[in-house]
Design a protein around this nucleic acid. Structure first.
Lengths: 227, 227
DNA sequence: ACCTGAACACCGTTCAAGT
DNA sequence: ACCTGAACACCGTTCAAGT
């Protein structure tokens, strides 16, 4: 056997430990010192594996994005089950439908991953955290749009829009946080709500990230690009 | 005169000082200690005005969002100049066009504000930073969609989508940061780019936040909801 | 009400030194 | 190459005390 590192610690092991801390204690708790302690290391030893904290965060974003696949076999199966008619001409429509479902499923998967760990949005919206993993995700989403019939340029636009939309939606949910802002500051002299739209948003669960509403908004965005 | 505070410092004065630091040194530099020093105060004195750092950040978000108006007289003027025909029947189409332009202008204005200060995205995507200002912005955007003919519920959905889209777009731009990721890791044995969509995104300026592309994506989203 | 000074429990990062 | 220990220049927040 080759002489491995003195201790059985790897970059990906550190990333895994960092995700555990993120999940349990939030973004602010993801510190060089904290991760080192969780691994039984001295803070300075961390710099053997990552030259800076930003590089660790970047690696975490890479890992988070790498898992989002735009090939959703489930979605394809759903589209099949939904049942293309026996007409051979329906092939195009069916493949469009599959492309649509794959893209929606990818965005929902990404949303789920971001909501999984508290503060993962802060991770993803950090300065200069995008890397090869982000490039790969955009490529996969874009290929989905190409499969839906878009040109490469439009697919790039659509992929960026879908990614931004998903990150923004979850970011907005987290921005509301636990703090329940009083939207219902209805005037006493009136039965009309002072802020009807904002109240509707709260009632519909847009703030809290209602899954059905999220899916619908993603589907609308995808449709806006594919048609 | 009433006996004012011992020193001429107000909450909004602190917020202003905090924005100056944000603009000059980025989000990480916006600290209780740093803002206090800029005002000639002791860090502990800050707690007279804001009970915690999060409250200061919340106040900053409020200020940032409060300035985004969905009534764009400029946009209305543009629509007028663009020239409704003399037919009286064109009134509806013209007012739809005005609503559309107002909404696009509001999103562009928000995008501009977010890009103005480095790290403003981190500010806005923070945990629990949304407050009355966010409610107000959603209400104004929503009213724009109502003016475009949407129901209150759909207007709420559209307003949330537009806000999320805008924040997400700028967040994505910042995530790329100065670090230029090599998309062009083209294989030597082939003329075909390895990641055609990602390369297209870079070429089109989607990463860097090209203004024309940003406007187009916002316009597409608005149109997807208004039609 | 507004402010200071000292203190507590944290940060990221560097540097010299050990194996 | 991998790791430790000490140190530097920071954090947010609390507490007792002053006016």
């Amino acid at each position: 056997m080759r002489p491995g590192p003195r201790r059985s610690i790897t970059q990906s092991g550190i990333v895994t430990a960092a995700f555990e801390i993120l999940e349990q204690s939030g973004f602010a708790a993801v510190s060089i010192r904290g991760v080192a302690a969780a691994l039984g290391l001295t803070p300075t030893a961390m710099y053997t594996y990552f030259p800076s904290k930003q590089d660790l965060l970047r690696a975490m974003v890479e890992a988070l994005f790498a898992g989002v696949s735009a090939d959703a076999t489930d979605a394809a199966r759903m589209a099949d089950a939904a049942g293309a008619t026996d007409a051979t001409d329906a092939a195009d429509a069916a493949s469009d439908e599959i492309a649509r479902e794959r893209l929606v499923a990818a965005a929902i998967d990404l949303g789920r991953r971001l909501r999984e760990h508290p503060g993962a949005v802060s991770l993803v919206t950090g300065d200069g955290v995008a890397g090869a993993g982000t490039v790969g995700l955009i490529e996969r989403l874009g290929q989905g749009f190409v499969a839906g019939g878009l040109s490469v340029d439009d697919a790039a636009r659509a992929a960026h829009a879908l990614l931004a939309h998903t990150i923004g939606q979850v970011a907005l949910e987290q921005a509301w946080g636990a703090a329940s802002v009083d939207v219902a500051e209805t005037q006493l002299w009136s039965d009309e709500p002072a802020r009807p739209v904002a109240e509707a948003g709260e009632r519909l669960g847009l703030r809290a990230g209602d899954p059905g509403e999220f899916r619908a908004s993603v589907a609308r965005l995808v449709a806006a690009w594919l048609r």
